[in-house]
Design a protein around this nucleic acid. Structure first.
Lengths: 129, 129
DNA sequence: CTAGTTGCAAAGCATTTGCCTGTGG
DNA sequence: CCACAGGCAAATGCTTTGCAACTAG
């Protein structure tokens, strides 16, 4: 059902080579080095289908443009830690407790998203603003 | 520096009367009842200036258009519930526990953002809108 | 009065879609 | 071969901006 095209390959490679989630524009720039003719529309189309296939996972932080990362550990439920100093995002294990009790009467809880903000180990040690 | 206009008043009233954060479009609809000629551009302009003045606070949910609530509401710590059926956002009290234990060694936690997803009372009870 | 506001429409952006050519298998 | 994938450009949808008319103070 899915062909193995140059562009699709390039996009996957760009993601696997990156240590952090990439936005469509960043993907175009990165994968564009492999396939010069790559168009933004193709990036969007592939990203969309790859998300639907579960190959990659969207990372949407509040007020930030959407970014994508390989599915990898995304299979396991996890959350993100956003370092406010170096602006990187880390996956963190675990899950808060007592969510059900926060839901108002009559509401049904299906899922949740949590983002922690602070400083990562690297930025906590050598502190600078 | 800021005039007291019908439209600005209507927008503030719409926000204060609402129990939940409103998007620009929702504001137009709500405040538009007071001032029929209200335009979307005016809503955006006022919302922008009101945020800068600290009168209202933006509520940014992942992949969602921004919504706004009075600063007063944002002052007290709370989180949001996003109804996946009617697409509205509600303020919810309370806070999850055990966040500190989720933070990796060496990381320092400063703040957190939580969004719950599911169905609101209206959409859970009655079939659909 | 007169500067800040508003409405409308056009301009911007980011993302999506139509359509025809290219190509993987 | 030929249906899916890609490239380009037009089309969306949301937000911003230019500009002339309007109005609060």
């Amino acid at each position: 059902m899915h062909r193995r095209t140059r562009q699709r390959e390039a996009i996957m490679q760009a993601l696997s080579k990156s240590a952090r989630p990439l936005s469509p524009a960043e993907l175009l720039k990165a994968a564009g080095k492999q396939v010069k003719s790559l168009s933004l529309a193709t990036v969007y189309r592939n990203v969309k289908s790859m998300v639907e296939e579960g190959l990659i996972h969207p990372v949407q932080l509040p007020g930030e443009p959407p970014r994508y990362e390989l599915h990898e550990a995304a299979a396991r439920h996890h959350h993100h830690f956003h370092c406010e100093t170096c602006d990187r995002v880390f996956d963190i294990a675990g899950c808060p407790k007592g969510l059900e009790s926060m839901v108002p009467v009559g509401f049904s809880l299906r899922a949740h998203e949590l983002v922690l903000y602070g400083r990562c180990s690297g930025c906590s040690g050598a502190a600078r603003s």
